[in-house]
């Protein structure tokens, strides 16, 4: 059951199996052709989005948004339930970056923190709908369940004094006790 392949020794079965799948994969090819570290975002978009998220939830002795995987959360959802927001993100991030370049001559991700705050404040008034979308999604990724790729190790819950998973004994009781209808 366990394949031990140290030293390149292969069993015949593994040999055939790996080869067959390899051939099939080679013939069909990769469908998506996606590059980079994200499912939807480009690395540049991720940089811009990360800067916005980290202004919405900055570090203050507790991690900021990107440190707990908020970008990971948003990126994953943008190819799942939030597919409907893909255009809003594409446009919004492009406009955000353009706004930053116009104001500071640099992309949002390259600015110093104080300038980022100014730039993000501008975005919140220039593109209120987009900003509201990012704000909501950032909060979901930071304060929501870790299973969706954000809130790593439930650090935000721990920050709020709400341990996750909670320490909780089983419901231990005698089945014979209690009223029965």
């Amino acid at each position: 059951m366990q394949s031990s392949t140290k030293g390149g020794a292969l069993t015949r079965r593994q040999f055939v199996a790996a080869g067959a799948t390899g051939s099939v994969a080679a013939v069909i090819g990769c469908k998506s052709g996606r590059q980079g570290n994200w499912e939807f975002l480009s690395d540049e978009q991720a940089g811009t989005l990360g800067a916005i998220c980290d202004q919405i939830i900055p570090a203050d002795g507790f991690p900021n948004a990107t440190q707990v995987g908020v970008l990971n959360y948003i990126d994953k959802q943008l190819v799942r339930p939030y597919r409907r927001h893909q255009d809003a993100y594409r446009d919004g991030l492009q406009k955000s970056d353009a706004s930053s370049r116009k104001r500071f001559g640099k992309g949002l991700a390259e600015l110093a923190l104080a300038q980022q705050l100014e730039a993000v404040t501008a975005i919140s008034s220039e593109q209120p709908e987009f900003f509201e979308l990012v704000r909501s999604h950032t909060f979901q990724g930071y304060y929501g369940s870790p299973r969706h790729g954000g809130n790593r190790d439930a650090v935000s819950w721990k920050m709020l004094g709400v341990p996750e998973p909670p320490v909780r004994g089983r419901a231990q009781y005698d089945l014979g006790k209690g009223p029965q209808s």
Binding site: T5, F15, V16, A18, G19, A20, T21, G22, S23, C30
Partner: peptide, 25 residues
Amino acid sequence: LAVCGTFGASYYYTSQYGQGCASCH
């Protein structure tokens, strides 16, 4: 094709510390 592919792919997947698996994004 199967023989060559088999040998190549198997070797690739089993001896590259995960590089073979990582070729799927």
